[in-house]
Write a protein that binds this DNA or RNA. Structure first.
Length: 446
RNA sequence: GGGGGCGUGGUGUAGCCUGGUUAACACACCUGCCUGUCACGCAGGAGACCGCGGGUUCAACUCCCGUCGCUCCCGCCA
């Protein structure tokens, strides 16, 4: 009998209704125990739903009654029994009449955080016990959406002829100079964690790969204490050859995003609305574009003056330009273009007639910066001059500069943050909510 | 790195401003009861040296100083 039971295939709770009238095996966690005098009720949760399992107290069921009496919430169990229709039952109108119950792993009675509790513990406790926190069904949805979003992005890239690359994360020199890289000991010398695949995706252009993308980890040693920064996150990077300007890159990105959001909307639009109360809207193409100089004027017109010496927008400025894009174009996205050279890296291409301005852009989504992109400087002499002007020493980046010595096509690309986009998409106030395991300046465990 | 806020049973909070009872409440936990529950209910119980260190005071969870941790904003960025 035991052998027969265990050979029964598992039924996911979302499919339990199809098993009405026959025996089924359900496996999951104990959400609730209601142990009464004549009846015992369990609510069992798996990653697809919740179902009630029931057994009467009787001599014939004594061993099961005993097990349930000693059971704890959040224990991992297998339940085998007949699935019956019962309209009174609030969890879907069906229940399982327990024939066999196996306690696979008993949970300690005192749980540090309760996945079914009425209130969320504070974020520190939740991050300490992230595996319990992640049992909450609404959190599972976040990662289902991430999977669909990422899959759609990859699918679109591949459809458009991009190659997927995996560039090294161990580097012999910091890719852009500066203090924001993590150094570490590497067989007696210093190496660095990659803070972007920038140099390597450009190498792929010099190699004639034409178009590449990478989805992978990037590391930033910034001691940033905000709701949208992490020291390790998943970067979405792409680079494309034979472009005329950064406009080609923006035109690609907006189509890529519109496609990916359409896929997410189709697959998860309903649960996202129910769980997070937000409508997944597929953005119209093209997105609005606002050059930096004009953006400053618009923001000033809204009563916020960004200091002249500051080349970039500040957070209030970002919110105001997003507000403008919504008022003027009804759009959640806005490209801010043409950043001054002093706030951009040396490899961004500059305009011929206005050389203090780069052919670059940031993409803001509801006021949050989610992308930086540009046309790259592909002419060796110009690139070297720009690196010198920024005060970089050429020796550590000579391997990179060499990419441009033997025929490199004009090209450009962008880098985006997966979690940041997910945070905006699902209307979450903190990047930690949408990160499987967050890494920040003071967070290395679990 | 600069500024603000918060640290009280397993979890979330109240109490602190205006020092003075056994530090309260909800959820969770334990025991018993309960004819199908469904946020089950009822009765009882255990569980907190109030982040840490120092100071003021007859007396400190409460006021002051320091320190550590967390958090938000700014800077930086995706």
């Amino acid at each position: 009998m035991k052998a027969l039971s265990t050979s029964l295939p598992r039924t996911l709770i979302k499919d339990i209704r199809k098993a009405v009238g026959s025996e089924a095996k359900v496996q999951g966690w104990v959400k609730t125990i209601r142990d009464q005098k004549k009846m015992q009720f369990l609510l069992v949760r798996d990653h697809t739903g919740v179902v009630q399992a029931t057994v009467e107290r009787s001599a014939a069921k004594a061993s099961i009654n005993e097990l349930i009496a000693g059971l704890t919430r959040e224990s991992a169990i297998s339940v085998i029994g007949t699935v019956v229709e019962n309209p009174i039952v609030k969890t879907g109108g069906v229940e399982i009449l327990i024939r066999e119950l196996i306690v696979e792993s008993r949970a300690d009675g005192l749980i540090p955080i309760d996945p079914d509790g009425p209130v969320e513990p504070n974020s520190e406790v939740r991050l300490n016990w992230r595996f319990l926190d992640l049992r909450r069904p609404e959190i599972a949805l976040i990662f289902q959406v991430q999977t669909a979003f990422e899959h759609a992005m990859r699918e679109y890239w591949i459809k458009e002829g991009f190659l997927e690359i995996h560039s090294p994360k161990l580097m012999g020199s910091p890719s852009e100079g500066g203090a924001e890289v993590f150094p570490f000991e590497y067989f007696g010398r210093t190496a660095y964690l990659a803070q972007s695949p920038q140099f390597y995706k450009q190498m792929a252009m010099a190699a004639g790969f034409d178009r590449v993308f990478e989805i992978g980890p990037v590391f930033r040693a910034d001691p940033s204490f905000t709701a949208r920064h992490a020291t390790e996150f998943t970067g979405l990077d792409m680079e494309m050859s034979w472009i005329d300007s950064h406009e080609d890159v923006m035109a690609f990105e907006e189509r890529w995003l519109a496609y990916s959001l359409e896929q997410v909307r189709q697959e998860y639009g309903d649960p996202i609305r129910e769980t997070f109360g937000i409508e997944v809207s597929v953005p119209a193409v093209p997105f609005p574009r606002v050059p930096m100089q004009e953006a400053r004027e618009i923001i000033a017109g809204k009563g916020h003056v960004i200091p002249l010496e500051r080349g970039d927008l500040d957070p209030p400025g970002e919110r105001l330009i997003a507000e403008y894009a919504m008022e003027r174009f009804g759009h959640e996205f806005v490209f801010v273009t043409d950043y001054p050279v002093d706030v951009r890296p040396f490899y961004h291409m500059r305009y011929v007639d206005t050389p203090h301005i780069t052919k670059s852009f940031d993409l803001l989504w509801r006021g949050i910066e989610v992308t930086t992109g540009a046309q790259r400087e592909h002419r060796y002499d110009v690139l070297v001059a720009q690196a010198r002007e920024k005060g970089l020493s050429l020796e550590p980046i000579q391997f990179y500069l060499d990419f441009f010595k033997y025929g490199c096509p004009p090209h450009g690309g962008f880098g985006a943050g997966l979690a940041r986009m997910l945070m905006v998409l699902l209307n979450q106030s903190n990047i930690r909510e949408v990160t499987f395991l967050f890494r920040g300046p003071t967070r290395l465990h679990p």
